[in-house]
Design a protein around this nucleic acid. Sequence first.
DNA 1: CCATTATATAATTATATGCTTATATGTCAA
DNA 2: TTGACATATAAGCATATAATTATATAATGG
Lengths: 114, 114
Amino acid sequence: MDTLKIEMDKAALILKLLGDKTRLTMVKILENHDCCVCEFVEIFKMSQPAISQHVRKLRDAGLVGEERKGQWVFYSLKKESDYYPMVQDILQHLPNQDYKLKELEEQGLRISCC
Amino acid sequence: MDTLKIEMDKAALILKLLGDKTRLTMVKILENHDCCVCEFVEIFKMSQPAISQHVRKLRDAGLVGEERKGQWVFYSLKKESDYYPMVQDILQHLPNQDYKLKELEEQGLRISCC
DNA sequence: CCATTATATAATTATATGCTTATATGTCAA
DNA sequence: TTGACATATAAGCATATAATTATATAATGG
């Protein structure tokens, strides 16, 4: 048991963040694929500001990083985060969400810039 | 990867439950020791109803079980829960909380009935 | 039965959260 | 520069959450 420990306060904050179906699904998707905001808008059938606010919380906690590519901002899981090992352990218990991206591709809505 | 998967909705609910410092600490303590409400009251310096409401949420989710022993009701982690494997994976990232029970014992407040 | 101790529940309140609408910022292409 | 598209931010509102106080239930021991 030489895993790095996370302070209880911080762990609770991270779990609260992940304790929202939208954000949890976002993170699960980001496990395998980077995504931009407009893709999430399509996937979750949710307004752009709502999505923006969710990813901001994930970013503020250091769970995801952002990278601008032209008009788009792509989000990715930050594997360097102190919390990443715990997040990974959580994600492995969740069903793969790739089908959501597949649906996007079929509709021609997947962004593959650059 | 043959771990049983948890539906996203349910996983989010469990994570939200654990996304509270008090409940998260309770569960971490219960990992090693059963506890009764009055012990939690001492540990968290919190009112009895507040504690009661927290453990109720954990019980409603099936994360903990209760067993009456005389005047006391002891709570324990339910290892049979579908969520237990995920919970276990989370707990391993948290610092041991046994010192909280040690403090109780030193004050003679640990309940060891039966 | 009564008093004490432990726990649960109900009602209330303050704060947190997540969404909406409106608006601002940023990039691209004509 | 202007218009279109992508994203971010701010303000407002409705609901959820966690605490408190008051009260109810349950077990124990005189």
